[in-house]
Design a protein around this nucleic acid. Structure first.
Lengths: 142, 142
DNA sequence: TTATTGAACGATAATCAGTATAAAACGACC
DNA sequence: GGTCGTTTTATACTGATTATCGTTCAATAA
């Protein structure tokens, strides 16, 4: 883990984050194993190295890392369920920051190429694509 | 709302759902106005017609409708936050049912076409695409 | 039309993820 | 060593969703 150690120090410096032991261990826990981790699973991993760490610290630092761009949030999700009665084919444009959703139309997916990349057995019969970015309002907030 | 009235009876029959007054009103509330609705906002709308309805009934029926395919869930989201330490450009393949996430590579997006459809000011500098479908395991479960 | 029965509803308690708060610990700087 | 701002910790709290359970209703058959 020497690599991520150094890597984290650099990233932290770049973003003006203090380098604390907890922060470093949380970061390393996330990138040590590839995949998509929940706060609970990260907490479990970090506790093997810092048994006294608090779950709140894990949450605090994950949020911080996401804000700084050290980590990405998978499927940025609003705090509440959203349903859509529009069953016609369409896609969504989601703001990663404020989680607002707009409909978007158009044929911008190359399904031939996509299906070549699909793992065996994945079923795309009613494809729904969500494209994440920053909406105008959040972009203006810098 | 006569149209959605009949439409709902048909859909319900097709999916073996009992037609209750509550169910009908919840369904109509969702499709009456386009957009992406939260359970709370649907609850508020439905209460104007059935003041005694329970929030649990709204939740129950929304879940039922999503399972039957009468409605779509926007950004199908795991119940918990997921973070990703992989900052290299890649996209995600998400199972709408079990919410599992796999990485997927490849140039299957036509960014020229996509950007023509983008509303003014939407910022796509680090585009992340999520493609929803059914993973093999969930598909096998029928 | 009525009787029966399993499904749906309503009220509310429980759960679970995530956040807020405040006190204690840390660490950089003087 | 003392001071001050930041971070961590413990824990209380919030808000969304689900579970429970007694009551009511819709579908079906007589």
């Amino acid at each position: 883990m020497r690599l991520s150690h150094e890597q984290f120090r650099e990233l932290a410096a770049k973003h003006g984050l203090a380098v604390t032991h907890q922060r470093q261990v949380v970061y390393e826990a996330v990138i040590a194993s590839h995949g998509h981790h929940s706060p609970e699973s990260i907490y479990a991993a970090v506790r093997r190295r810092i048994p006294s760490i608090s779950l709140a610290t894990v949450y605090n630092n994950l949020r911080l890392f996401i804000e700084c761009g050290l980590l990405r949030e998978v499927s940025p999700h609003a705090s509440t369920l959203r349903v859509d009665g529009n069953l016609k084919p369409h896609h969504h444009l989601v703001c990663s920051r404020c989680k607002s959703v707009q409909d978007i139309e158009g044929e911008f997916i190359d399904f031939n190429r996509l299906s070549r990349q699909l793992p065996d057995g994945f079923d795309l019969t009613q494809p729904l694509i969500e494209v994440f970015g920053l909406c105008r309002r959040c972009r203006a907030k810098n």
